[in-house]
Structures are given as C-alpha cells and as structure tokens.
Design a protein around this nucleic acid. Structure first.
Lengths: 345, 345
DNA sequence: TTGTAGGCGTTATCAC
DNA sequence: GTGATAACGCCTACAA
C-alpha cells in the first residue's frame, strides 16, 4: 500500500461532488442518478482509482476472507480440497487465506490466532495429528465466527463437519479383503485420537468380527502414516512369526511405500503373498503396479461442500454452530493389489 | 468481525490510561515502562482483547499479506510451491492469499485485481497458459508493489524470476535419450508462448542438432499437456507412417498418460519400443512402472526462494523491479522408461 | 513516560 | 438524489 493512491475524495474533488456520493455510485447504490454514476465511474477509471478494501473492510466489519488451516498443502487430498475451496470462495467473492499446521498443535494455534486477528469471516480446517486441545477452534465459535471441519474433526467443537463415512469405507475395504480370501489382515492405523483413524480402525475391526475373524492387536501398527512409516510397518509385519496375508493402510502413502518395500526388499509379491489396500485414491494409486485398491475420497468435492456450507453460515442462511455432519460419497476402488487367488487366475 | 469486540480504548478506560499508551505497550514500544506494559498486557488478556489487524493495516498502510496466483493449486508442483511459500511467509510474519487462474487469462486478471484491491504487499505468480497480455501484472510494479515470477514468467514484465534452467534440463533429457540409442525423438510441447515450454523445446531441438539429428516438426505435438493430451499425442505418434522411438514430454502428466495408453492399447512396450521421459519429477514418476525418467524440479525450493526474494523486496532490502533471474538447481533423474537396449540387457 | 489529536479510506446515518 | 459528519480500530507525530 503506497502513498499517493487515488481515493474517493480525489474523485469527489475532481467532480465537485461529495465523497459519499462517490462511494454510493461505485457501489451501484440506487440512490444516485444513473448519469452521475456513469460520470463518477468514468472519472474513477480516468484517475486510476483502486478501491481500498482494507478501509472498506474496517468500516463494514467484514473481511471478505475465509481462513483455511490444514496439515499440509502439498498432500494431494488437501491440495485438492484447497482447489475446491478456492473455487467456490472465489465465485462467492471471498478471499482465501491459507495456513499449514504441519500436523503440529503449536503451529495450528498460531495459525488460528493469525486468522482470528485478521478477522476472517469463517474458518475451514482439518485438524493436526498432534492436536488434543481445541480451545483455539472454540474461540471462533465463541465469537460466532463460523467454522467448518473437513475430514479430520473433533466432536468437542460444536461445528459442522464435512466428511466421508470412514467407518463404512474401512468396513468395505476390509470385507473386500476377506472376500478375496485373506485371513490375517493387518492394519496401518493413524493416531487414534483423530476421528477418521479411529473410525477406519473400528470399521476394520467390525468387518473382521462380522466375518468370524478374531482381531489380532499385534497386527495393528499405529503410526503417522508417512512414507517411512509404511516401510517400518511392513518391516514389522515381516518380522512377525505368523505374518499377515493382507494389509489395510489408513492412507495411500503408507500403503504404497509398504508395497514398494515389499517389492524391492523381499521375495513376496503383491497381491499373491500379501494383498494391500490403501485409503484416499491418490493419483499414484492408479498408476502404480499393481494398481492399489483404495477408497476414493474427492478432496475437491469435500472442499467445495465445506466452503459452501461455511459461506452459507457466514451469510446467516444456515444456523451456525450446529454440529451437523455432511457426508460426501466415497467409493471403494478395487484394483489388483488386493485380489485373492480366486480373482486373478 | 463482530460488534462488541474489545478495543484498545476499552483497555484504556479500564486502566485509566490513554489508548495510545495501550497501543505502544502492546507493540512492545520502549517508550512505556516495563511495569505499565505488563499491567496493560495483563488487562488485555483479562478482557479478552484481540488486536484488529484490519485497523492496524489501514493505519500503517501495510497488509502483511502476500498474494499468490498460480494455475492450479492441486498440481503437485504448484502445491509444493505453495507449501514452500507459506512456510517462509509464515516465518516472516506474512499471510498468504491464494488464487487459481485455471490457466485462464480472464481469471488471472480478476485475481490480480482482487489482490491489488486487498493491498497485498507483494505478489508471487506463475502465469497462465492463456496469458498473452501482461498489464495486470504491470499494475503492481507501477505501484511499486514487488512481484516475483516463478517457473512460468514473461520477460515483458520487469520483475525477478525464480526458475530452473529449462533449456539445459531439456537438453540433458534429450541428450540422454540420444545416448541411449534413440533416433527419432518426439516432443510433447506446451504452448510456446510460455517461456518454459519454448525453452524446453529449444533445448530439445539443440540437443538433436548437436548430435547430428535433424529435428522433424511432425514429431512435435503442441498441446496443453493435460492427461488427455498425452493420450492424444501418443495416438498421433502411433498414426505416423514412420513412428518415433522415444518421446520427451514437457511434463510428467502427459508423459505418464501417454505411457499408460501405450501399455494398455498397443503391443509396444516401454522403453524397448518406445522410450519416454517427462519433466517435473512428480510423485507418480517414481512409482509408476517402468519408472519415469524426468527432471527433478523442487516446487518447495522454488516457492521458498521466490517468497524469500519477494519479502526481501518488500522490505526494501533488495532493489525491486530488476529482472534478475534466480536459478534453482534441477536434476535429470534417469529411471527405466528411457533406457536403450544397451542399458537394460 | 504518558496524553492529545488527527487521520488511514471507506461506509452509514443523518439531514437537506 | 446529494452532502455533511461521524465512525470503524488503530497508530503516531507532537506536545506536555
């Protein structure tokens, strides 16, 4: 912001009008003649006037900005979500301010403060793995700034969530593995403090039980689901006296790194000796060979839905603060990595 | 932004001080006793004071925000760049406002206007494929708001660019293909109006000539390098009477889709019958089989460098408006997709 | 060290 | 339909 910028007062002086008239004209208020409005707009153009939204925002007490806090912008699921968010925000006249928590609690708190101080009109967030306290989110609802969670949420905060049915999706993956003939199914689980991982775990467990398989806790590897965790998880599973014949990983990243580890550092092949399934349907899942069975979860759809909901709450079209759940469809995508002997003869 | 928010005046009234003292204390000005400062900070906490940065920004004429315009947030290269940008911006106390152009000129112009009107202190951008005019960028430099391009730039705008050496990288890829014994090398080229594609094309052409191969224009397929373009490009190449034995695609996306098309819809195999190389080293490149030979180009590094430079310009630590070029290292990554008979016996 | 006064650029509420 | 005036919340000369 530089000095010497043209303001509505400059236009006013130029046309011998009052700045309030200029303001009205530029905002297309009906309370000014079409003719003078045109004159004003013309003069504005000629003088190179650029509205100062900071001033307008201060005055109107609205920032026309929504804040986003998510773990990693560069993860495919999240960047797709951002793409979706940005798309609807843009269409509805909102700016988007982005922050990454890097899955760290401290950073999430700082981000939340920054967004609050910038008076964002609403917040979209997917919570960090490390987060166990939620006051930094509650501050928004307390000031009646709407907040909408997507994917990762915490029920403690009274707010709408946009999610997929993680339990059901995980159940389906597991059931699919069972139907393909796999008996000892391991699970790479994320931090159970996060709803999505807890639910995926429960879905997995329930499917086992429903099919008469006894869940074996030694087959559950809880980690942060990073690429390296997939490798460590697979090493762990291979070290077991009675190793599993399938792995259901709570994300694609760990699934893929585990699969590649297996292919490069063991004689076992996928899916014959070890079936593998992931979660998210990242682009890599369809490209890798064998193709990775996974759950399609459109980040873009989720982002769009969350942004739409948030903006509706901002506009007061919907009651804010109800902990409603919006469920986006997900879909089991079966590829070769999970097939049993019966299927790939 | 709600009414009833606590302001510095409320604190002032509460402590029988003047708001200016409150302001100074909260900004850690040395011009206020340590003791009263503590008292003030304590009261601020107690009253639940939250600074209103919009007001502060209006007053100081600085928004503490940098704007980013790029084609697609969800493309891996760009989302990595955003991650890098956000990281340094956050560290330096700047917010990041994100816009997508969807590779469309009109949208880029609108985005630029929005950022301008929000008085961002600087702009980072990678230009849209459709963009042929650059006034919307020049408006920033004219108002002495620094702008830094990354990856895709246009020399018409007097501004710093953060790039890799696209010519050299493309040259190396092509030379590598030649050394592997390939003779008829096709090229999937992006819009030549964009510097990066023009340079990659030139590098490709130069390498051919330097090795005594005559560039054949019928082997150059110019397109937008989307997944479908890779398929169309490959169809086109297969339809030629004298088909090529290698393809160098100016991005990974088209390279990978072309390769998969070949694998699924022809008898030709990669790299024996058709070698393939891409550009960018997207995550898929290392995961696909055969692994895709490509050029590693770290979006995160580029984003970080661009953001650092921009912030330095904002702070006046560096002259703005010099069209300096910052070159980030890139690296040829050889994988199986490009190997010649000699290499994979 | 603290207080006073004015303004950043806009919009909103009055009047006329 | 247009103008005057005040305010949004904060910062910063300048004065005391």
């Amino acid at each position: 912001m530089k000095k010497g910028q043209v303001t509505i007062h400059d236009i006013a002086r130029h046309l011998n009008l009052d700045s309030s008239t200029i303001s009205r004209a530029l905002n297309d208020s009906p309370r000014v003649t079409v003719k003078t409005r045109e004159r004003i707009k013309e003069a504005a153009r000629a003088l190179g006037y650029r509205p100062n939204l900071i001033a307008a925002n201060l005055r109107t007490r609205r920032s026309k900005t929504i804040g986003v806090i998510l773990p990693w912008v560069s993860r495919h699921f999240f960047s797709s979500a951002v793409a979706g968010i940005e798309q609807v925000a843009y269409k509805e006249g909102y700016n988007v301010m982005i922050c990454q928590s890097h899955d760290e609690y401290e950073r999430e708190v700082t981000n939340a403060t920054a967004l609050f101080n910038n008076r964002v009109e609403g917040v979209l967030t997917s919570v960090a793995m490390d987060t166990l306290k939620f006051d930094h989110f509650k501050q928004f609802t307390e000031e009646s700034t709407p907040i909408v969670f997507f994917d990762r949420y915490n029920p403690e905060v009274q707010a709408c969530r946009v999610v997929i049915d993680d339990f059901e999706a995980a159940y389906q993956v597991t059931e699919h593995l069972i139907r393909e003939g796999h008996q000892r199914i391991a699970h790479f689980c994320g931090p159970r403090t996060l709803n999505i991982y807890e639910k995926r775990f429960s879905g997995y467990e329930k499917a086992l039980k429903d099919h008469g398989l006894e869940p074996d806790p030694t087959l559950v590897f809880e980690c942060r689901l990073l690429a390296n965790d997939g490798i460590e998880g697979m090493k762990y599973l291979l070290s077991l006296p009675h190793r599993p014949d399938a792995v259901f990983s709570a994300n694609d990243l760990a699934a893929i790194s585990a699969m590649r580890y297996l292919q490069q550092h063991s004689d076992l092949s996928v899916p014959e000796d070890m079936a593998i399934a992931g979660f998210s349907n990242s682009p890599s899942a369809s490209i890798i060979s064998p193709g990775l069975t996974t759950v399609d979860q459109s980040g873009e759809e989720i982002g769009k839905a969350a942004a739409k909901r948030l903006i509706a709450e901002i506009r007061g079209e919907i009651d804010r603060g109800t902990d409603e759940v919006i469920t986006i469809n997900s879909q089991l995508i079966v590829r070769e990595s999970s097939l049993g002997r019966a299927s790939h003869l």
